[in-house]
């Protein structure tokens, strides 16, 4: 695999070139995951770039990204594999006359009649892939247990077929917003990466990378404000995704400074709850200069 980076630094710089600014820990864990062949459990607040990391990794490593979006009630028929009943029926009808039952029975439970779902697809793929299991905390515990075999041995047992082992070694990322405690068994099989809100300098670098046309002064002012807003006790503090959205919005508006007026108009980009909007307007908005904030709010 010529595409595997030699060191964590190399991976970091490649990620940067791809437009994902990873901090040292993120790059290191991602690199270790490739080296050790272990899945990574990525946790952190919403919108700090957990999913983005997987996407960027797949581009950097030049692999396909297979994504499994988890939700409550997700079962193995949708995540792992399913028998193609229609095709099986057709097979039985087509040949029922001249072939014996045993032959048909063997036949219809072959790989030909298997519908591959993302997880199976990831391990049976000829080329190594990046598998993203997004928001694993949204599923039930039973589903988590089902994942264990896949995560530790990269194999799937299908009762009628036997065990399918992986042909290539995928890089697996599981993301979680920590909405429920994951089981110890799952954690034990994974490397753990906690991505937090980035430090001011790092976030500034990200903003500069994503919106290079935004004036530097505005960008740093934006970071300052976002940091201040995160300090408030909000239902949903703004994360990097919101910062980037805000930067883009400001760029579109052609703002050359964030004053009270601009802030009031664009606030809804970063704050997304009714009650939070009030809090932010009250605590941050009025501090900005630029005139009519006091009279308007």
């Amino acid at each position: 695999m010529s595409n595997t980076p030699k060191t964590a630094e190399e991976l970091a710089s490649r990620l940067t070139a791809d437009g994902y600014l990873a901090d040292t820990q993120t790059a290191l864990v991602a690199w270790l995951a490739i080296k050790l062949g272990k899945p990574v459990l990525v946790e952190g607040p919403a919108g700090v770039g957990k999913t983005e990391l997987a996407k960027s990794l797949s581009r950097v490593l030049d692999r396909d990204l297979i994504r499994l979006q988890c939700y409550e009630g997700l079962d193995e028929a949708k995540a792992l594999y399913e028998w193609n009943y229609r095709k099986q029926l057709l097979r039985i009808q087509a040949e029922s006359a001249d072939s014996g039952w045993d032959k048909v029975q063997d036949d219809i439970f072959g790989e030909e009649f298997l519908l591959e779902r993302p997880l199976l697809e990831a391990i049976t793929s000829e080329e190594p892939v990046v598998l993203l299991v997004d928001e694993i905390d949204k599923t039930d515990q039973e589903f988590e247990a089902m994942l264990l075999e896949l995560l530790s041995d990269f194999q799937v047992s299908i009762p009628e077929l036997g065990t399918m082992t992986s042909r290539s070694h995928p890089v697996v990322l599981l993301t979680s917003n920590n909405s429920r405690e994951l089981t110890e068994a799952l954690k034990r099989r994974c490397l753990y990466l906690w991505i937090d809100y980035p430090e001011a300098e790092h976030e500034l670098a990200i903003i500069r990378l994503k919106t290079p046309d935004l004036p530097a002064a505005v960008a740093s002012r934006l970071i300052e404000l976002v940091a201040e807003i995160r300090g408030l006790d909000l239902k949903k503090p703004p994360s990097i995704a919101e910062s980037i959205d805000w930067a883009r919005a400001l760029l579109l508006l052609g703002a050359d400074d964030i004053d009270a007026k601009v802030f009031r108009e664009t606030m809804s980009v970063i704050v997304k709850h009714r009650s939070d909007l009030d809090t932010v307007a009250e605590r941050v908005g009025v501090k900005l200069d630029g005139g009519d904030a006091a009279s308007a709010s």
């Binding site: 964590a8 820990q25 290191l28 990574v40 994974c190 753990y192």
Partner: peptide, 21 residues
Amino acid sequence: HVQWSDRAAVHGALSATLAKS
């Protein structure tokens, strides 16, 4: 897999494998 002399790398490798919440 990491340089032992690099304190940050050792720290990172250990924290990723030992601390899981």
